[in-house]
Design a binder for these strands. Sequence first.
DNA 1: GCAGCCGGGATTGCATGCAGTCACCGACGC
DNA 2: GCGTCGGTGACTGCATGCAATCCCGGCTGC
Lengths: 247, 247
Amino acid sequence: MAEQGVVPFAQAAQTQGGEDAIGGSLADTAYRQLRRSVLSGQRPPGSPLSVSALARDMGLSRSPVREAVQRLIHDGLATHVPHRGAQVVELDRRELMEIYEVKEPLEALASRLATARFSQADVERLEAMLVEQDRAVAGPVLAEESTLMELDRAFHSYIHRAAGNRVLCDTLAAWSSRTNLAFPSGWANPEYARLSVAEHHDIARAITSGDADEAERVTARHVRLVRTRLARWQARQAQDRAAGGVA
Amino acid sequence: MAEQGVVPFAQAAQTQGGEDAIGGSLADTAYRQLRRSVLSGQRPPGSPLSVSALARDMGLSRSPVREAVQRLIHDGLATHVPHRGAQVVELDRRELMEIYEVKEPLEALASRLATARFSQADVERLEAMLVEQDRAVAGPVLAEESTLMELDRAFHSYIHRAAGNRVLCDTLAAWSSRTNLAFPSGWANPEYARLSVAEHHDIARAITSGDADEAERVTARHVRLVRTRLARWQARQAQDRAAGGVA
DNA sequence: GCAGCCGGGATTGCATGCAGTCACCGACGC
DNA sequence: GCGTCGGTGACTGCATGCAATCCCGGCTGC
């Protein structure tokens, strides 16, 4: 049970945006650029996405930009307000919880499938990622939030790909980008970050040891815990906002 | 555990196409019309979806049709061949199996969530659906395939909505339309149809009795069995085709 | 008879024009 | 001061023009 080390999907340009490199069409380029700016927080939730304005800024016509915006809408990263144009989506708590609810069994499935297909090279790669994660949360001060998010994304994404199910992989990638959108500074909390990394160790241990049932269990647990922490963080945010609003 | 009988989502015009009725934009109308003709089998897999030709046929310009086709592509119901235009997707066995693999835990989750939220009205509605299904497979000759498919869709869709998780509901709806696309005459097999209906009874029994664990279990089992039957049916089809090809 | 080449046709992708619709803001009247 | 009305601006959605690209068929030459 181990063909190669790397699992070579087509890398789903749609869901994973392989850099702003030369994209086939202008619409692709615009899509990736917009997507990147949205996911990076450069355009925070609620930002307007006016086709005309974007076309002006990006120096091309409205057609490809319009297409790019509509793809974002379809991805759930933007919404279309009837006569106000599009804007970056503002996920409410309910929707966020819904995504985590469905992510739980699917992430668990991914880990189970990946366990059966993991090669020695995969094991080494995953362990290298864990070393990076340990380093990122080791010192008294954590690495950059964006770095932490990227490490997290890479870890889970690797398992998704290793599962060898493209539908599963694409679906989880789409959901993860949406949840990351709503979890801007959650990674700034050292406690949360370290807990996540610890849970990643549990997942990796189960997968590399070949225990599919255990991998499924600890992965589901991880998703559940992240959801709990996210809810707690959101509640705290709301509380702080309320307190700050008075002052 | 029971607010209303009906679970009122926005009905996800995107994924459920509420008839070809007056859609906001021409693009919406074109999308629904195309989607309908694809899912009904009127445009079988492999059919070309030329924007120009469709625009001519539908009596409108290329812009909205182009948008509609791209939505179909994003839905996974069509593919875009670089310089040949789009065409109705031809799902290969691998992809079909992948979809069933991910549907299993999600359908199971839907049943579990629905169990906790089912009201008395929901119970009655579900039982009415089962009566319809029984009637459809009762006689020596089954009802129309399209009728059977619609009954099946309605049954599962009702549970999805009852789960009260919109992301879950939309995702399953999208996947189901893709699998239905590849299961054209699977419902013509009386044995398969009766087995499915029997399993629906199991699911309904578990849900209405409030046993979430059991609902989850039998639902997963149902998806697994459908997948097995589909694989068997496909193998048989391939065999028949091979035999027919010789003659 | 077969291989290779070239042109016709069609298609996509992008740019742009045009009209309809609506939100926003200021002015006006009460 | 407040509510209401009208103008302005912008935006979307649709139609259409234009160039580039590529497939496919027929034709030519060997």
